[in-house]
Design a binder for these strands. Structure first.
Lengths: 108, 108
DNA sequence: TCAATACTCAAGTGTGTGCTTAACCATGAG
DNA sequence: CTCATGGTTAAGCACACACTTGAGTATTGA
């Protein structure tokens, strides 16, 4: 995944409403109005959030009749997760090696 | 970690410059000017980015003399990583169970 | 056919973000 | 002491973002 796409994934996840939508969708697919119902904002605003989520691969949607059904797309989640995992483990590995060197110094 | 803190973590990671700083710091600690040197922006701007990164627990810094040394704080990375991991696996588990049910339907 | 449902789109508004400049403070070297 | 280094802070600007309103389209049920 390109750097520019990761921008949008993290940007999308930065908003609590959008993270709420993702959270809701992990419990199963839902229509736009179902997603909007519990929220204190307009349906139009929810649609805009969904467009952001779809644009960066966090959510897939499909329109049947007049109902648009939304569901999680794990690809986006995985991309962000992998980025974080790589950096964190790289750093922790470095820390461990440093600890080893220090240990070696004090021992013997 | 509270929801509000996750906001700031993802918000921080949404910016490519800040993600670049995190990336750089996984290769080892650095001073503010070292971090700024390769970047096309002012040192003041870098300081502002670092404040954002520190405020949300992605980076720790320590000032000795007039030099501020920055290093990764894995806590922030882990918080975001965990959030993503939980949602993704929850959804994939759901998908697997759905596949099982469909399988059962077509079989026998 | 008529009305309700389920969105969709465009325009506008207030707030937040990234960046710059410019002035400033603290430390270390000569 | 004096100057350079390394960083900090504040003010301001341009643009992006979340949200609303309002008007429109397509589908469905009676």
């Amino acid at each position: 995944m390109l750097n520019h796409e990761l921008d949008r994934v993290f940007q999308a996840l930065a908003d609590p409403t959008r993270r709420g939508l993702v959270d809701r969708l992990t419990r199963g697919p839902a229509s736009v109005s179902e997603l909007a119902a519990p929220l204190p904002i307009t349906l139009a605003a929810v649609v805009q959030h969904l467009q952001a989520l779809e644009a960066c691969g966090l959510v897939r949607t499909e329109k049947v009749g007049r109902v648009r059904t939304c569901r999680i797309d794990p690809a986006g989640l995985r991309a962000a997760e992998d980025w974080l995992h790589e950096r964190r483990t790289a750093w922790e590995f470095k820390l461990d090696r440093l600890a080893d060197v220090l240990e070696e110094g004090t021992a013997t």
